[in-house]
């Protein structure tokens, strides 16, 4: 098994004067569910397309499943659900899956069994012999998800997989992602729905203007904790001293606040304060939601996409 399912180094892509992806480096291990977060136009879809060999980068390079991007043997083990999934709408759902399976080199009874399994999984068995042009947006998204899995991939790229889905459909996608992870597949998820990313991903990278600006693990340790302290002494010297435990240390409304990377920092902070003779009258820590993090990381200069 490879150490790295995806290994991208300083990937850069420009469209004219616009920089879509800038110096992007990623390393994603096997079995990981990876979230790629950023506002519209941040370069997330371009990055996925580069990793799939749909777009050639201007600089840098990447390997997928141990092979250079675009390698056909590697692509045979990859699934992809594009944003705004489109396909020949004159096909039925079953025909669509059959064609995609064949393009992956899967045929015969094995393919037919896989198609039945997937149609049942995405709850489209009843509509399997209807033309795609009669499908609702949610049904199209679900059949698109099924086509991304028809080759039983070890790596799946999902670009906004819940776009157009109702809450039940979103739950279905979330469950499918969990099943993929349980089966050992690696999932690369682009999504605007931060709750969905928080619920499914092991790790997220925030992208801004084509550049990776922050990486956070969601599994091994809690995301940034916001710590609120009520102290006997909130002098600038004490607050400056707290800076070594985290970021954004400040004093307001009688409380000292800062952000730390993990819960392990909390007893160290208390010990440090007590050693300095500062009374600790209260300490609260709470995990910051991904949405808060997103807004903080992206800054105030972002406009709705």
């Amino acid at each position: 098994m490879q150490d790295c399912v995806i290994d991208a180094r300083q990937v850069t892509k420009r469209f004219g004067t616009k920089v879509a992806v800038s110096d992007l480096s990623l390393s994603i291990g096997p079995g990981e569910t990876f979230g790629f977060l950023g506002p519209n136009g941040a370069g997330k879809t371009t990055a996925i397309k580069i990793l799939l060999g749909l777009i050639a980068p201007d600089g840098g390079g990447a390997t997928v499943l141990g092979a250079p991007v675009g390698n056909r043997q590697a692509r045979a083990r990859v699934g992809f659900l594009p944003e705004h999934f489109r396909f020949h709408d004159c096909l039925t759902g079953r025909e669509l899956l059959r064609f995609h399976g064949r393009l992956h080199g899967v045929r015969g009874p094995r393919l037919e069994a896989r198609i039945d399994e997937l149609l049942a999984r995405v709850d489209l068995m009843d509509a399997s012999d209807e033309l795609l042009r009669t499908y609702s947006k949610g049904m199209l998204q679900r059949i698109g998800l099924a086509q991304a899995l028809v080759n039983d991939p070890v790596l799946v790229f999902l670009d906004e997989p819940t776009s157009g889905l109702d809450p039940l459909g979103r739950l279905l996608v979330r469950d499918v992602i969990k099943e993929l992870r349980a089966g050992g597949a690696t999932v690369f998820l682009n999504s605007h729905l931060l709750g969905e990313v928080e619920a499914t991903c092991d790790r997220v990278v925030f992208v801004k203007e084509g550049r990776s600006v922050r990486e956070i693990s969601l599994r091994n340790s809690p995301v940034d904790l916001e710590v609120e302290l009520r102290l006997s002494d909130s002098s600038p010297a004490i607050i400056d001293g707290l800076a070594r435990f985290g970021t954004g240390a400040s004093h307001a409304d009688g409380f000292v606040r800062l952000r730390v990377g993990s819960e392990e920092s909390l007893p160290l902070i208390v010990k440090s304060l007590v050693d300095q003779g500062v009374g600790v009258y209260g300490l609260q820590s709470r995990r910051r939601s991904l949405e808060q993090l997103f807004l903080d990381i992206m800054g105030d200069d972002q406009r709705p996409g």
Partner: peptide, 13 residues
């Protein structure tokens, strides 16, 4: 329309 993306990402030249 974007249809080509699903085809071109398959293991095809």
């Amino acid at each position: 329309s974007g249809v080509i993306q699903t085809l071109a990402s398959k293991p095809l030249r």
